[in-house]
Write a protein that binds this DNA or RNA. Sequence first.
DNA 1: GGAAACATGTAATGGGTTACATGATTAA
DNA 2: TTAATCATGTAACCCATTACATGTTTCC
Lengths: 188, 188
Amino acid sequence: MSLRIALLGLLSFSGPASGYDLAKNFEKSINYVWQAGHSQIYPELAKMAADGLITVEAEGPRGRKIYTATREGVDELRGWLIAHTPSDPVRSEYAIQAYLLQLLDPLEALAVLGRMTAGIEAKLKGLEELSAVKRSAAEQTRFGTYALDLGIRHAHTTLAWARDTATAISPEAVEGRNPGETGSTDAG
Amino acid sequence: MSLRIALLGLLSFSGPASGYDLAKNFEKSINYVWQAGHSQIYPELAKMAADGLITVEAEGPRGRKIYTATREGVDELRGWLIAHTPSDPVRSEYAIQAYLLQLLDPLEALAVLGRMTAGIEAKLKGLEELSAVKRSAAEQTRFGTYALDLGIRHAHTTLAWARDTATAISPEAVEGRNPGETGSTDAG
DNA sequence: GGAAACATGTAATGGGTTACATGATTAA
DNA sequence: TTAATCATGTAACCCATTACATGTTTCC
């Protein structure tokens, strides 16, 4: 359902577009918040057309099909936005690892948390750069910025959590982790 | 893969257990972080047994099967914890709605954000109550608490984001939202 | 005897990822 | 002519949800 809504939304923003256009557009906007590749998008567009939510307005070169949202499609989108209460099932591999960390000894657990921290920092850096680019280029819609903002905030939260958890597991070990020291050879 | 790991983890904590036990246990622990029902757990256990990660140690009354992790299972779990970098694909209906809100007029958008806020507040309340219960009952493992903590932090973050976004859309309208006023009939 | 909880499964369906497959157009 | 990019699809497989289906034990 969400994919359908996302595609209807993109069509509403951009006007008539092909599956290829939508896939490209998806990749650099909603993608930060919901993932889908062309192999999922093309069949979904076919189903949406069969359901009367969109129509093939025209066919261009190379078999390019131009879709437009129908009245039903617009209604569907508006109805979902206004009436649908989002579900937010948490499905976090980070949290699973956190839950199971006690099966490792403290030093191993700290190493795992260190890897987590690095991963989240990298992701956060990417999102923030993107945010800066989009803001300056003004290529981004106002609300697209808000979605990106949510992503950045969540990454910050996860990062802070990983650091605090590391501290809770072993305060001394974490405090000893200053730049230039690895803490692996000299314990004192 | 994650389900497998979660089940191996639960088995490691509890010792030998049946699918039923694991499903119950799952529901009140990892469930806040990764969801799976019995209809997913039973087949997965069968596959894990076929793959040599667990074995049926004994059979109890009512066809109850008691599983234990094998050496391979323990290795698999430890290997995943130590080597696997968690993926955290964001798949948030909240964010999709945020992205598409500009298709509504500001008053409609505010109503949607209000519903979001209420939903997240309810969820947060549930998680925090649970956290209090678990802390007092000491029934919770130390790291299970950390996973729950992550859930609570994320909910807080989403809530703050929803409020800030509402303010950004329409500062006046949001400031006017005091208890006792609905703001729907008298526009001020 | 009947309800509740124990205990285990399968089937149908939907959603998502990866890989496979094909062909047209454009620009170097 | 050949590489890049445009453009569209299918197939195999995995994971997840909901509903269906069955039988046992315990307790009232």
